[in-house]
Nucleic acid binder design. Structure first.
Lengths: 223, 223, 223, 223
DNA sequence: AATGAATGAGTATTCATTCAT
DNA sequence: CATGAATGAATACTCATTCAT
C-alpha cells in the first residue's frame, strides 16, 4: 500500500493577494480535474489555467496530491455541512420520518458538484480516503446507531450496528449510482420513495432472522 | 471523458507457445497490479516479471490499457461464471428463496480474487467500465426484472425496474464494502441474513407508496 | 571556467539596523551552510532562518554567490588574523623556531570554525577561490620566501621559492587532512612535531640536489 | 551529511550496441563535466552531446550521480593502474630509491587526464569520496607503512604510520597543486627532486623527536 | 516471432531572483 | 527600507511505445 504523503498546504496565505491566488488555483484545479481527470491534471496546466506561475502553486501546495487533497477537503466540507443540518432534525423524528429525511439529505448532498464528486470518488488513486472523510462517515454511523439504540423498542433488527451499516451502504450506493447514471429528478424522487419504504419496513417490520448472534458482535464490528 | 482506445489483443495467439506467453504475461500483470497498484504497473515491469521482452508483450497487447482490459475481462468472466450458475436456479425459486440465493451468490462472487477485485474497482482510472461488464450487469438486471414481472402478483412494488435496480445496488454495495472492510465469515453471514430479510420484506411486504407513476418510466430507466 | 560574478555587497549598510540585518543574515547563512551544505543552502531558507525577508537579503547581497563570498571573506579574515599575529614573530626566529611556530599557527588556524572551513574548502563549486584568499596565500608565500632569502646562508635548498611552496603545501595539506579526518589533540601534536622535524631537516640539512638550475626559475614560478 | 545514493549502473549492457551507447555517454559526460563543471552537466545535455536519448542514459545510469560515479571509477582505475605498476618495484628498492620512484609515479599519475582530475577532486559535491578510492588510498598507505616497518632499522622516525601519512599527504598535495597551478615539466622535475630529498632526509636522517609516544597510537591512527 | 535497446515527450518540482505593496 | 508573494526557466527522471537486429 502506497504511503500517504504530506497533503497539508505548505503555508497558510495571510495576505489578501495570496488568498486570492490560492482560490484561483483551487478553482482551476477543480475544473481541470473534472474535465481531464486525475492523470490529465498536471500542475503546470493548473497553474496556467489559473493564470499564475507553477511556483505560486507550489508556494501553497507542496505537491500535486496536496492540491487534490484540498479539493477533497472542500468538497467534503460541503457534504458535511449539508448533512449536519439534517442529521439532528432526523434524529428527532420517528423512524419513518428519520429514514425519509436521511434519504432526502443524501440526495441533496449528491446534488453538490456532482461531476467533482464523481471524479473524486472514482478516479483518484486511493491512497486511502482522506482521514477526515472516514471520520465523518464514522460519525454519521455512530449517530444512526445511537438513534437505533434509542428507538430499539420500535425496531425489529437483531443488531443496530449492522442495521446502520446496511442502511448507510444501501442509501449511499443507490443514490450515488443514480446520480451518476440515471440522474433525473424524476428518478431521484422515485428512488427516494422506494428506499424509504424498504428501509422503514426493514427496520420496523419484518420478522427478525432466527439467530441474532448478537453476543459475537463487537461494538465496532460494522465500522 | 477520455475516449476508449483499442483494447482487443492485437492478434489471437494460435500456437501453443504464443498462448503460453500471453498467459505468463497476464499472470505477471495481475500480480503486479495487485501488489503495486495501477501506477506501479509498468509494461516493462510486467514483461520482466513475466520473463519475456516488452516487445513480446506488445505483440499481444497493443497498449497498457488492453492488458488491464484483459485482466478485467478474465476477472469478469469468473464473476459471470459464478453468477450464471446461480441465476437460473434462483429464477426458479419463490421470492424469498431467490433473494436468498442471489445474495449468497453475490458473496461467493466477491470471494473470487478479492484483491484484484478491489484494485480493478477502485484504482483503475475509469475510462468507463469495460463494455462487457456493463453488458453483464445489464443482463443480470434484465433477468431480475423479468423475474419480478413474472412474479408481479406476489410482489408489492410500484416498478419492477426500480426494484431490480435497488436490489442489485443494495446487495452489491453492501457485500462489496463488507468484503473490503469488514471481511469475516461471521460478518458476511449476518449481512446475508439481514439483506435477505430486508429485500424480501421490501419486495413482498409493505404498503406500496401512493403514486406509482409507472407510466412515466421508460423501459431502460434503471439501467 | 565559469566567470566570476559580482560578489560585493550591493550597498554598505550605514545604519545600525541595517548592520544588524546583515549580521543576522550572515550568521544564518553560515549555520545553514554548515548544517545542510551548499546545495541545501537556499536564499529563502537563509532569510527565513535569519528572520528577515528574502527581499532584505537581496538588499545587501545581490546574489547567492555574494553571500557565500562574504562568508569566505569573514572566515578568511579570521584565518589571516590568526596568522598575521604569528608571522612576524616567526620571521624573527631561527629556522627551527620559525618552522615550529609556523606549524603551530597552522594548527591553531585550522581550529577556527573547522566545519565551516571544511564546507568552504570542499563543497563550494569552485569558481576559483576568492581573490582575497589567493592574495593572502601569496603574501604568506612571499614572506616565507623573503625569510628564506634572508637566511640563505643557514639553508641548504636550491630554490627558496620552491622551498616555500613545498613547505606551505606540506604543512597545509597535512594539517588540513588531519583536522578533517584524524582530529585529536594527540594526533595534531605528533603531526606538528614530525612536520617540524622534516621541514627543518629539509631546509637546513641535507645535501642539495645536483643541478639547482636556479636561473630558469622566474620570480613567481611557485605562486 | 547527505546520504549516498545508488551509484551502480542500472544494468550491465550485454549487447555490443548497448556497450557502445554506454561508452558514448560516458565520454560525453566526461567532456561536459570538464567543460561546464558539475552544475552545468545536465543529463539532457549529456544525452544530446552523446547523440542518444535521455532515456538511454537512464537505462544505464539510474541517476546523475551514478554517471559521475562511473567517471570517478574509470579515472580511479587509471590512477590505480599507473600506481600499481610502480608500487611493487618501489617496495623492492632502498629508501631513497623507493621515495624517488613513488614521487615519479605520483607525477605520472597526475598526468592522466588532469582536467578531469581537477573537476573530480574539486567540484564534485562530496557525498564522501567513492569507497573504492578510499580503499585504494588505504591500500597504498598500508603498503608504505609495511615497507617502513620492514626497513625500520634504516629509518629514523618515531611512528611508521605517521610517517606514511605525512609522506603521502605531502607528495599528493604538492604534486596535485603543482599540476593544477604551476604545471610545467620544469616545475614538476624540480619539485620531484626536492620532495625526494626532503622525504628521504626525513625518513633516514634527523634526530627523532623526544617522546615518540608510540604506545598511544592505534594501528589505524593515520588512516 | 522474439528481443531489448532506444526513444523523447511529458511530469513534478525547485529555487534564485524580482517587484508591487 | 522591508516585505513576501510571484515568477518561470531549468532539471532530473519516467515509461509507454517503437523498431533494428
Amino acid at each position: 500500500m502506497t504511503a500517504r504523503r504530506r497533503v497539508r498546504p505548505r503555508k497558510l496565505p495571510t495576505q489578501a493577494r495570496a488568498k486570492a491566488t490560492v482560490e484561483v488555483i483551487v478553482e482551476a484545479a477543480a475544473r481541470i480535474l473534472v474535465r481531464h481527470g486525475f492523470e490529465g491534471m498536471t500542475t503546470n496546466r493548473v497553474a496556467e489555467k489559473a493564470g499564475v506561475s507553477v511556483g505560486s502553486l507550489y508556494q501553497y501546495f507542496p505537491n500535486k496530491e496536496s492540491l487534490v487533497a484540498e479539493l477533497e477537503r472542500r468538497h467534503h466540507a460541503e457534504l458535511r455541512a449539508a448533512f449536519e443540518e439534517a442529521l439532528p432534525q432526523a434524529m428527532a423524528l420517528d423512524v419513518a420520518g428519520a429514514v425519509s429525511l436521511l434519504i432526502q439529505s443524501a440526495v441533496k448532498v449528491h446534488t453538490i458538484n456532482p461531476e467533482l464528486h464523481r471524479v473524486l470518488s472514482e478516479e483518484i488513486p486511493r491512497i486511502g480516503p482522506a482521514p477526515e472523510f472516514k471520520a465523518f462517515e464514522q460519525e454519521v454511523y455512530e449517530n444512526l446507531k445511537a438513534y437505533f439504540e434509542a428507538r430499539r423498542s420500535e425496531l425489529c433488527v437483531p443488531d443496530t450496528g449492522l442495521a446502520a451499516f446496511i442502511v448507510l451502504r444501501t442509501v449511499e450506493a443507490s443514490v450515488h449510482d443514480t446520480m451518476i447514471h440515471q440522474t433525473t429528478p424524476q428518478n431521484l424522487g422515485l428512488l427516494g420513495q422506494e428506499l424509504s419504504r424498504m428501509i422503514t419496513l426493514y427496520l420496523t417490520g419484518g420478522p427478525v432472522s432466527a439467530k441474532p448472534a448478537r453476543a459475537k458482535l463487537g461494538k465496532a464490528a460494522w465500522h
